[in-house]
Structure formats: C-alpha cells, structure tokens
Design a protein around this nucleic acid. Structure first.
Lengths: 218, 218
DNA sequence: GCCCTTCTTTGACGGATATCAAATTCAGCG
DNA sequence: CGCTGAATTTGATATCCGTCAAAGAAGGGC
C-alpha cells in the first residue's frame, strides 16, 4: 500500500496510518458516482485516499453550486459526522476515487484515544470553516473578476499551478456563470497570466493573477 | 447566578455548568468593545452568557461584511481555537455583554474528559458550518429579495419574531446594500409582512415572508 | 478518420442592483 | 422641548453581469 497524501495523511505517524488502513473499509467510485447522499444521516467518516471529488448543492428549484473541489486527504462531511447532523451536500467522484471509511462510533473512539488524530481532524474542519468564511466575504464584497482570480489561486495551488476544472466548476465556485468565466479566462490568456485549455488551466504568472485578485492592495 | 440560555448551555448537566462557572473567567464588555482581535492566536475558548455580538470582517480596502449576529450560548471563534488557528473575524459587543472564557489547554482537557461537552461543542461548530454553507448557496444563486427574506427569518427566530438589527447589518448579512434592504423592507411593510422601525423589525406574517424567501417552492 | 457529445468562445441585449444624492424621521440628551 | 447625529427612506441614474443565441474546438468511441 502506498503512502496516501494530503492534509489528513500528511505527517501521520506510521503506526496510526497502519491502524487506520486495518480498521477502515476501502471503497472505490467511478466518475459520476456519489459518495453519500445529502440528507442521509452522517454515520460514517470518510477520507479520500485518491482521486478528485466535487461537492455540490442544489436548491429545490435546481440552482446548482459547487461547494468544494476535494482531493486526497480531504474528509467530506466530517463536520456533519461529529456534529451528529445529516450530510450537508453530496460529493460525487470526478475521477476514479478510493476512500477509507469508518463507522461514526469507531471514529469517535479513535478520536478520543488518539490526540494526534483528534487535533488533525479538528484542524481540517476549522480550515474548511475559514475557507467558507473567506468565500462568503468575497462573494459579498468583490466583483466577479477578483472572485474568479481567487478561486483559481485556490484550486490551482503551488507548485503545480494547475487544475483540471471546467469553466462551469470555476463559475460555480465563484458564484457566477460559465460565460463570464470564459470571457475572463480568455482575457487573462491574452495577457499572459494563464495558459488555458479544455478542462485545464495553468497559472503562468501567479503574482500577476494575485494582482487581479486584489487590484489595490496587491 | 442565573441559568444562562442558548445552544451551549441548553440542557447542560447542572454539575458541568457549575464547574464551567468555577473554572472560567468572567468578563464584561460595553457596546462597541471587541472581544478579541482578528489575527490573534486563538488561545481562549469564549462563551457568550448574555448580550448580543456582531462578528464582522473587512478586507484591506475596507469592504465590510457582517458574518454573524450572536447571542447567549454562542462560542465565537470556537472552530479556530480547536483548529489551532488565528481568530478568523473579530466579534464586537452590540449590547452589554458577559462572557466566560477558558484557556485553550483547559478547554481541550475538559473536552477530552467530558463527552457531553465535546459533543456539544462539535454540534455548535457543525451547525455554523452548515449555516455558512447555506448562505454561500443563497448568495450564489438567489436574487436579493429572497436573500433578505431568509436572513430575516434567520435573525428573528420564533417565537419572538423580532430582531434589533439595523438595515446596514441586514444588508451585510445578505450581501447587499442598506438602500436595497430599506426598499425591500418598505415594500414588505406595505404588504403587511413585517412591522419595522428604527433598529427594530418584527415579522408579522412568517409564512408570507417564507413565500418571499422561496417564491416557487414555498 | 469521422461522428457526436461535451466543453468553450464570442456577441448582443436587457435588467437587477449598486451608486449617487438628498430629504426625512427618529431617539437620546442637554 | 429643541438640537443633533444616526438611521432610514426615496428617487434618478449608471453599470456590471447574467441571459439569450449560436457558432466553434476538442476529445472519445467505433
């Protein structure tokens, strides 16, 4: 078994990693499959080992938004699990995905007995909180171009500076439409800031893009 | 000492309540005072016993938004405390406020030793997560009037159906301007849905307002 | 290699809301 | 009881961005 990467597994003690592998149930999902359903009782802690996942939410009327794009080391629905709630938004696989899952009782026991694990999970939840807060602030106060710039900086982190997201996904993450995103990306490409393709965007000039994300304060 | 109310204290075992009072440090804040500052290391768990608090965030350029309006039983900054982060947004007192605070090490110990407490705190954090997610969705997909309606339903809960919020605060919670909020409230008042005044709004027809929050699906 | 689906680009247009501006009302306080 | 500053209301105007429409690319499968 290969060492999984990402926030949850990063720096994890080897013995804990082994125990997690031993006690968790491995599942695989093909692109398009749903990991769990909104409104289901959150009875299982899930960790993504490999693959990309889109977390999305729709209103009764069908207005969709992408809540997160998650990769290895993410814990979709973790807050709901420990908060005793229903899952807030369904995650669906974009690529082939492998996950490890633990029933909620076992997860709670593990957290109680292992301080490192508890702290790691809380950090991940707190980080998600902070990210949502920031996005809320952006959507409330910033014009579209800045929001898209920030979204892109977020989903194409260093050092890869790359993301396989569609325009539609970027739009939903930025609270706008794919048309507007497309126009903006085209302009940026003409300005040499990014290098775009189908389902593919690479940041060519990260500091230039950061400028667009916050024209005044750099 | 009177029994404090709100999410955190609701249904709390009497002995735990006593211990919390005994070990925590009580502080008071006058209107306008700040409970803690953004960017400070989150080294203290704070619980609001009494009073109203506005949590807000500004960008370097001054664009402000109100993140939450909190009352008794809220735990401002809790996610940051347990996630080992800095406080994400400063809470300032609107009314006279009394809080109980515990240093982070003590808070962690208490949670480790008391499952009821741990579960309660996690529920509060998870609930905040869910609320932010919902607001993000609203801001991304719904027109202004619906957003304001939902905000109002949220900040003026049953049975009081009342909130002492200003138009400006409602605007920042709804990602719009006070002008737009004012126009909308005026219209609602003419339609008999609310009963508004200075720093004061009461919902007169809750189901009618819910209609405005979601015209199609009621 | 060709078709067919999915994704992307681009243009024209309209409308929901922010912005600008000014008057009005209200509450607290001396 | 009038003053004063804050909160609110209302109108006119401008504009960003979503909507509508249609035409390209770019893979993927057969």
């Amino acid at each position: 078994m290969s060492q999984p990467s990402g926030p949850f597994f990063e720096n994890m003690p080897a013995d804990l990693l082994q125990e997690l592998h031993r006690t968790g149930s491995l599942r695989t999902f093909a692109p398009g499959e749903t990991l769990f359903y909104e409104e289901d009782r959150a009875d299982q802690l899930l960790a993504i080992i490999e693959g990309r996942v889109r977390v999305w939410r729709t209103s009764p009327r069908g207005a969709a938004m992408t809540v997160h794009l998650l990769g290895p080391g993410a814990l979709p629905g973790a807050a709901a699990v420990f908060g005793g709630m229903v899952y807030p938004a369904p995650p669906t696989a974009i690529t082939d995905v492998r996950t490890l899952g633990w029933p909620i009782e076992r997860a709670e026991n593990m957290l109680q007995e292992n301080a490192w694990l508890a702290s790691s999970v809380l950090k991940i939840i707190a980080h998600r909180n902070e990210e949502m807060l920031q996005r809320l602030h952006e959507v409330s106060t910033q014009p579209v171009e800045q929001r898209v710039a920030r979204t892109l900086l977020r989903v194409a982190p260093e050092p890869a500076n790359f993301t396989p997201a569609t325009r539609q996904e970027l739009a939903e993450l930025s609270a706008t439409t794919l048309h507007t995103v497309s126009r903006i990306i085209s302009r940026w490409e003409a300005d040499g800031l990014v290098d775009a393709g189908r389902r593919r965007i690479r940041i060519a000039d990260r500091s230039g893009l950061a400028q667009r994300a916050d024209p005044v304060c750099g």
